[in-house]
Amino acid sequence: MSSHVLIAGAGPVGLVSALTLATAGIQVTVFERNTTAPEDLRASTFHPPTLDMLARFGLTDELVSQGLVARYTQQRDRKNGLVAEFDMSLLEGETQHPFRLQCEQWKLNKLLIDRLALFPHASIVLGAEVQSVSQDADSVEISVKTASGIQAFRGDYLIGSDGAWSAVRQSLGIDFEGFTYPERFLVVSTDFEFADHFPKLSYVNYVSDPQEWCVMLRVPSLWRVLFPTSPDESDEEVLTDDSIQNRLQNLLPRELPYSTIHRTLYKVHQRVAKEFRRGRVILAGDAAHINNPLGGMGMNGGVHDAFNLSDKLVEILTAGGSPDLLDRYERQRRAVAIEYINANTARNKKTIEERDPETRRKTQDELRAIAAHPSAAKDYLRKTSMIDALERAESIT
């Protein structure tokens, strides 16, 4: 009987894993609790190595055609404007895609779902919420809540890619170590063209300020602006029209009110699962590690998990590879989650919100100096684009 891998969650991590496995001839079933494919509006940045990986399936060119190629990223000051600009073309020779792609995450989901539909041994079950997990030496079984009741499914392995509140992780009793920031993050999408008013604005901008920093990201049809919110503000207060307008008007005053297309408020965490593997169950993506979005490393790191893990499962299930490869996955990706993804995103937040004037001045001077020297700028971009993190993972045996 052919091998069968179960996957909890039909986000990019679960779907990339499914496509990798299906391409190798392995039966795969993806369970998604939502009744439609997720259209998550949070992630919108694809880093160069992620684009390199997706090119394996011919997906990168399709994504690029639907997004914006961001050659430059900027560090800005809310009052003083541009601090430093980094040219990602310095990464030529390090990657096949020396740029960041600004493209909504749901577009990747759709491409992956369309591609999976070509494989008769791959299926996606919508409206199916994985609730609990059990396993023995030879298989894993999941309990799934569907419209017709609770059903059980059995497979050789289970990938838990069911998000930050992962039922798979919780069912196994795996600790999710770390902390939650007191403030929530507000993302507002508007069709107003900020680039007509901020000189030389790039598609990716980290704007520091001691009172209210922000991140300004361009996607094909909209600008997305991320603001921190005060723990003293209720969710209802943050999401009112007056509150949204005040934040946008403080960023750029104008006579007319801003039109907003989306507004999303969410809690932000820095957490890493104590274990990424328990027997035949393996965690990936947000189920294994979550971080603040400053740097765009969450979804990208999850996709990197998916390729690392699913390639190892292919070797185990089709080429007689040792299941111990899954322990190497845990060693590799957990180290990266702690040493690179969580460490860098936490540092990014600290930098952008710094209130001490002298520390702010020193940091901005350092950024200017790095951007002015190509070798230093390249090192900086290797780190921020996650190339260093992948090399670190590969070095772990």
Rank of each mutant, 00 (worst) to 15 (best):
P120A: 00
A273K: 02
H289N: 02
I316A: 00
V133Q: 11
E39G: 03
V133A: 11
M216P: 12
D242R: 12
Q96H: 11
F46P: 14
K383L: 13
D356I: 04
P293W: 04
A164P: 01
T359N: 08
N80E: 14
W223T: 13
I7R: 11
T20E: 15
E104D: 10
M53S: 13
R368N: 07
S134K: 10
D175E: 15
A284R: 04
Q249R: 05
R392K: 12
P220T: 06
P228C: 05
V64Y: 01
L91F: 08
A195R: 14
H97Y: 15
K362M: 12
I352N: 07
E353K: 05
P120S: 03
S375V: 14
A137T: 13
G67C: 05
A195F: 05
V225K: 12
D162I: 06
R56N: 12
H269K: 01
L239I: 01
K383G: 04
E366I: 10
E233Q: 15
A167V: 02
L313T: 08
V83K: 06
H97R: 10
S243Y: 04
S171I: 05
D61T: 14
E339T: 09
L19R: 15
Q131G: 04
I338Q: 13
N344V: 00
D232P: 04
Q27T: 15
S259V: 10
F31I: 11
L317Q: 07
F307I: 08
D209W: 04
M53K: 14
R71W: 02
S139D: 13
E330L: 04
